[in-house]
Structures are given as C-alpha cells and as structure tokens.
Computed example of a mutant assay.
Amino acid sequence: MLRLIIALIVIVGIWAAMAHLRRLPEKQRKSLLWRMLAWGGGLGLILLVATGRAHWLFAVLGAMLPLAKMLLGVGLQLFPLWKQRQKTASSSSPPSGPMSAREAMDTLGLKGEESRLTRDEIIAAHRKLMQKLHPDRGGNDYLAAKVNEAKALLIKRLG
C-alpha cells in the first residue's frame, strides 16, 4: 500500500511539473528541465544508496559531477587570461610613429573624404569597434590602442 501511495505521489508530481514546464518560455524551460533532472537523479542516487542497491562511493562520484562542471566553466573562463600571459610583451605594445588621417579612417572603417566626416560619425564608429575589440571583451591591447589613436587623431583634425 505504501508503494502505491509513493508511486501515486511521483506520478502527480511529474504531471504537475510537466504542466508547469509547458507554460514557461523555451530558455527557462530548458534550464528548469536540466535542474529537475539533476535533482531527480541525485534523489534517486540517494534512494539507491539508502536502500543498499548502490555503493556509497558511487553516490559520492555522482555528487561531484556538478562540482566538476563548475570547475570546467571557471577553467574555460580563465583560459584566455592564461593564453594572453603566454604572448610576448612586444606583440601587445602598439608600434610607435604617427598615424595618418587616411590610416585613421581605415582603422575606424570610415569611407569618403576626411573633410566630410562629422564628430558623431567618428564617435559612432569608435564605439562600434570598441565594443568588439576592447580587452575586457576578448580583444587585445594593440587593436584597442589603434582604434583610440585613430579617434583622437580624427577628432583633433576636425578642430
């Protein structure tokens, strides 16, 4: 009788969870489904260990999987920093020498004549490039310095 009640509770719980999942947006649904599967697997593992059907080491290894996933994520986030450290100092420093107006326009991706440029066009082109090339967003120091130098030169020439 106890098994029947537990089975009935599990079936009602699964039915309620599925009804709730159907109402959520796709991204939240996927996230919640993975969390539910992880919790269900963990509870099932605990039940197997408690009833003597699985060795306790198996449960410990299963409990370590989320920790391994988190450590892998942290490692992947730190990998670009490690790779950047491997670069030589000479490749990260911008070259010396003045930049021409044409080179500055090419750097910012601006077309046409220098005399027809407006301050707003220069700033918009600079902002667009810096969103992609900033060192905090995965770019490098050299490209960011070139883009900044091009913006400063063109704005200075505008007057």
Rank of each mutant, 00 (worst) to 15 (best):
M1S: 10
L2K: 10
I6S: 09
L8A: 13
I9H: 02
I9K: 02
I11Y: 15
I11F: 15
V12K: 05
G13I: 03
I14N: 03
W15V: 06
A16S: 14
A17P: 01
M18D: 10
A19L: 12
H20P: 00
L21V: 03
R23T: 10
L24T: 01
L24I: 04
P25Y: 01
E26T: 00
K27L: 13
K27C: 01
Q28D: 12
K30S: 11
K30Y: 11
L32C: 02
L33V: 04
W34C: 09
M36I: 10
A38N: 05
A38I: 07
G40E: 06
G40N: 05
G42Q: 13
G42W: 09
L45R: 04
L47C: 10
L47H: 09
L48R: 12
V49R: 04
A50S: 12
G52S: 01
G52W: 14
A54S: 09
W56P: 07
L57N: 06
F58L: 13
V60N: 05
L61D: 09
G62D: 13
P66E: 11
L67A: 10
L67Y: 15
L71I: 07
V74F: 15
G75I: 06
G75A: 14
L76M: 14
L76P: 01
F79P: 00
F79E: 12
P80I: 04
L81H: 13
L81Y: 14
L81V: 02
W82V: 04
Q84K: 08
Q86C: 03
K87E: 12
K87L: 13
A89I: 07
S91D: 15
S91G: 01
S92T: 00
S93T: 04
P94M: 14
S96E: 11
S96P: 03
P98T: 07
P98V: 06
S100N: 05
E103P: 05
M105S: 01
T107R: 04
G109Q: 06
L110Q: 10
E113I: 01
L117V: 04
T118Y: 01
R119N: 05
I123T: 07
H126T: 02
H126Q: 05
R127I: 06
R127G: 07
K128D: 11
L129P: 00
M130R: 08
K132Q: 09
L133T: 06
P135M: 14
P135E: 14
D136A: 10
G138Q: 08
G139W: 15
G139K: 12
N140S: 07
A144D: 02
K146L: 08
V147D: 15
V147L: 10
V147G: 09
N148H: 05
E149G: 00
A150N: 05
A150W: 04
A150G: 04
L153S: 02
I155Q: 02
I155E: 13
K156P: 03
R157G: 00
R157L: 08
G159E: 12
